[in-house]
Design a protein around this nucleic acid. Structure first.
Lengths: 151, 151
DNA sequence: CCAGTCGCCGACTAAAATAATCGGACTTAG
DNA sequence: CTAAGTCCGATTATTTTAGTCGGCGACTGG
């Protein structure tokens, strides 16, 4: 239904939060969880995933926590989403590499949907975490080819 | 997880199929279901929803069925998706009008996500069912502002 | 004029995805 | 050496999605 999972929301919030603190400051799970009212254990797993994907780096022990692995301008929104959700596809057959779709043989919407998906990918890839701050109220993608409303 | 539901897939396939048959030919649920290996009862409900939204018109009785209510150039992909999924939002708070989101007070990703969502809307709205045929293997949205891959 | 074909509708069950919890192990600053 | 932190797998609860069932109502051809 075209909705992001809460885990992804949490991930974006957390990364955004870390970005706002800069690379000098190390933040821990509890701090972020309290800031946004997120269940700690859940956020913990999310951050672990981000760590394994190399988007953030972890520091163990007391005074430990996380920092962004690179500049917020170099972290795309897409990379965060994919870190949490794995391979994202708009349809079953693009979501699961080895899906057995009953409709495959005669499917008439695969290719066009792939194009839509690629456009969305492009959009998400072109937007960085930094952009999410800056463009708080601007439109990102040129919609020059839009030709008015249909029903 | 940014995936369309099967019902929506079915709806798009069905509409596409009807478009391919033209407005003269009336098609029934069973015919479409067999063409694409879709469970009839499920497809039936999908078509009913499309009917209620005025995208297709129904004909009762024997030899009954459905026809597109208007030209395939005047039916946007978005309208089909919305007919099935209702109001679509990329996040909980945009999906559900009256959602009580724990993160609301301090949420730092609402506005940027809304922009992303609007871009997706624009894309889906600008694409008609007819376009889905034509652009079987073309890219729809100009991605001129893309600036290479990040992680 | 009535029998069979079709759409219409709501309630129901089944399966899958998501959200959240729990328990315990490993790491390290103080 | 211990408390504060990350790490990790297993488990449960909740919600969403997929699919099923049964009956009603509309219509058309014979």
């Amino acid at each position: 239904m075209l909705k992001l999972s809460k885990k992804t929301d949490y991930a974006l919030m957390a990364v955004q939060y870390m970005a706002s603190k800069g690379t000098a400051r190390i933040v821990n799970t509890k701090e972020i969880a309290e800031e946004y009212n997120i269940p700690v254990e859940l956020l913990a797993k999310v951050l672990q995933k981000l760590g394994k994907k190399g988007l953030i780096v972890s520091q163990n022990g007391p005074k430990g926590g996380y920092v962004l692995a690179k500049s917020s301008t170099d972290i795309s929104v897409l990379s965060v989403i994919q870190a949490i959700e794995g391979h994202v596809g708009i349809t079953e057959c693009y979501h699961n590499e080895d899906s057995t779709c009953m409709q495959m043989p005669r499917c008439n919407i695969r290719t066009p949907l792939r194009n839509i998906q690629n456009s969305i990918y492009g959009l998400l890839d072109s937007m960085s975490i930094e952009d999410m701050k800056e463009f708080g109220s601007a439109t990102i993608v040129p919609q020059s080819r839009l030709n008015g409303h249909r029903t």
